[in-house]
């Protein structure tokens, strides 16, 4: 555990909590892509199946349970409790265009051809692109609530911090996981455009709106 890894995890946790609280307090999931949230629930489910097979640490186990629990709670709020506020007309990204190729790639490029390992690989690849329905939705509506941008910023920063964690681990532990690194780079790149808008607009007190 190093400082990049820990702050990355905390940033990830902050993102998840910000989104849950935003929906809960406003009693609305307007502007939130339910499809991205279903993909994240799928990511955590397929990645954390090792909760059933191996114990790494209390930290590891509790964070996994919190992440996966919050992911399902978010999906429940969007598709059940506050379904009336869900903006399905703007959430039109075709997720099969992500899930099918990612599934195929997980079968082809993995560390070990075993069910758990393929599902873990699938989750790593899927996570890297799971935010696309949300970004697509924002590009369609042309705007995002400020609290939604805080969520996206924390979620983007988390994987960027993991990149520094992997550099650290490579130098000090000789640890190196090509699958996670390449997917993490892709994931972080997808946020770059958003980071630019967040820093130049939201941090200066302006609402995030895109030119028509």
């Amino acid at each position: 555990m190093n400082v990049f890894r820990l702050t990355g995890d905390l940033s990830h946790l902050a993102a998840i909590i910000i989104l849950l609280l935003k929906i809960w307090k406003s009693r609305s999931c307007a502007g939130i892509s339910g499809k991205s949230q279903i993909l994240f629930a799928l990511v955590f489910t397929t990645r954390y199946l090792d909760l059933l097979t191996s114990f790494i640490s209390l930290y590891n186990t509790s964070m996994k349970i919190i992440y996966v629990g919050c992911a399902y709670a978010t999906v429940y709020l969007i598709y059940a409790k506050f379904r009336a506020t869900y903006d399905g007309n703007h959430d039109t990204f075709r997720v099969e265009f992500l899930v099918v190729p990612v599934g195929g790639l997980a079968f082809l490029v993995n560390h070990d051809f075993s069910p758990l390992e393929i599902l873990w690989t699938f989750s790593i690849y899927l996570e890297s692109v799971a935010i696309l329905p949300q970004l697509f939705m924002i590009s369609k509506t042309g705007e995002a609530e400020t609290i939604t941008t805080h969520y996206l910023f924390c979620l983007g920063v988390y994987r960027a911090l993991y990149l520094f964690n992997w550099i650290w681990r490579f130098y000090f532990e000789g640890f190196f996981d090509m699958i996670a690194i390449v997917a993490g780079v892709v994931q972080t790149i997808l946020y770059c455009d958003f980071f630019y808008l967040y820093i130049t607009k939201v941090l200066k007190g302006k609402k995030l709106s895109l030119p028509a």
Binding site: R5, I56, V109, A180
Partner: peptide, 10 residues
């Protein structure tokens, strides 16, 4: 491919 490594990361 190389062998699977234990997953201590989240």
């Amino acid at each position: 491919d190389d062998d699977a490594v234990p997953k201590d990361e989240l």
